[in-house]
Structure formats: structure tokens, C-alpha cells
Amino acid sequence: MIVLPTAVRKAILERAREGSPEEICGVLGGEYEPDGRSRVRSQYPAENVAETPRTRYEIDPEQQLTIFERLEDRGEEIVGFYHSHPRGPPRPSATDAARATWPDRSYVIVSLEPLEVGSWRWRAESTDGRFERERIVDD
């Protein structure tokens, strides 16, 4: 389960609308629980540096490191990541699964058509890895 405050959800949705038709992305900070209830406290927008930003996302490694340092300075943990699917469902694509690298972290996906937010945890314990849907609750 992931606790995603309304204010954070609204901020991510607004970024997704403004960034369309390209995917937007960022990092979620807060309290991380590998098998329990993670709580998002903040979101850190990042630039999408993918070669094809309309269908892929990639956070610049240097910017990601800067965000991680800000999280640590604020006493937060990496809860997970978020990105948008401007014209797709709020579930991981095959590319999302192939590029997932943070075990047990949440991957929040915002869909604009239809307007919906989904969250998934990356479980890497199997040989090919897989996403498990997780429940989103407001705080």
C-alpha cells in the first residue's frame, strides 16, 4: 500500500497535463516500507531526458543523484518514482518492466486518457522481475 497525499497527487497530475504529449517523471520521497505501507511526503520533479520522451521516460543520472541528496538532507527515504502515460493506461508497459531497477519501490503511473493514477511495486525476487499492483490511499 502507498499513502499518496491529495496535494502530491494533484501536483503530479498537473505536471502530466502540462507536459503532455511527452511523459513526465520524478522521484517520490517519504517513509519507505518494503513490504508494508509506504508514505509519500513529497515529490521531486525531474527532466525527462529519454530519446523518445513521448513514449519513454528517463531521469538524468546527475539530477537523480541531486534529488537523492535532497531527500537525505530532509530526512526522507526514496519511496519510489512516478511518470505519466499521456495516451496509455496507468499500468506498467513492457518497457517500464524491462527498465525497472529499484526492488520493492513504488512506481506511480499517471494516465491522461483515461485520467487515472495507478501504483505498482517492482518485485525483483523472481528471475524476470514483475510488478505487483498496490493500493493507493489518501492521507
Rank of each mutant, 00 (worst) to 15 (best):
I2S: 13
I2F: 06
I2Q: 11
L4G: 05
P5Y: 12
P5W: 11
T6D: 15
A7I: 11
R9A: 14
R9Q: 12
R9F: 04
I12W: 05
E14F: 07
E14P: 01
R15W: 11
A16K: 03
R17D: 07
R17F: 11
G19L: 10
G19C: 08
S20R: 13
S20W: 01
S20H: 05
E23F: 07
E23M: 02
I24M: 11
G26R: 04
V27K: 01
V27E: 03
G30N: 05
G30Y: 06
E33Q: 12
R37M: 13
R39M: 01
R39E: 13
V40F: 10
V40A: 10
R41G: 05
R41F: 08
S42E: 10
Q43G: 01
Q43V: 06
Q43T: 13
N48V: 00
V49H: 01
V49Y: 00
A50R: 05
E51N: 09
E51Y: 08
T52C: 11
P53A: 02
R54V: 07
I59C: 00
D60F: 01
E62V: 10
Q64T: 00
Q64E: 12
L65K: 14
I67L: 05
E69M: 11
E69F: 06
L71G: 02
E72M: 01
D73I: 05
R74E: 15
G75D: 05
G75V: 02
I78F: 12
V79P: 13
V79L: 04
F81G: 00
H83L: 14
S84G: 04
S84E: 09
R87M: 07
G88T: 09
P90D: 08
R91D: 10
R91C: 13
R91A: 14
S93F: 08
S93D: 02
S93K: 05
A94T: 07
A97W: 12
A98L: 09
R99E: 14
R99Y: 08
T101F: 09
T101L: 04
T101V: 12
P103A: 13
P103L: 10
D104K: 14
D104V: 04
R105F: 10
Y107Q: 09
Y107W: 08
I109H: 03
E113C: 03
E113L: 08
P114R: 11
P114T: 06
E116K: 15
V117M: 04
S119C: 15
W120N: 02
W122I: 08
A124I: 04
A124M: 11
S126T: 14
D128P: 02
R130M: 05
F131I: 10
E132W: 07
E134I: 15
R135D: 12
I136A: 07
I136P: 06
D138F: 12
D138I: 03
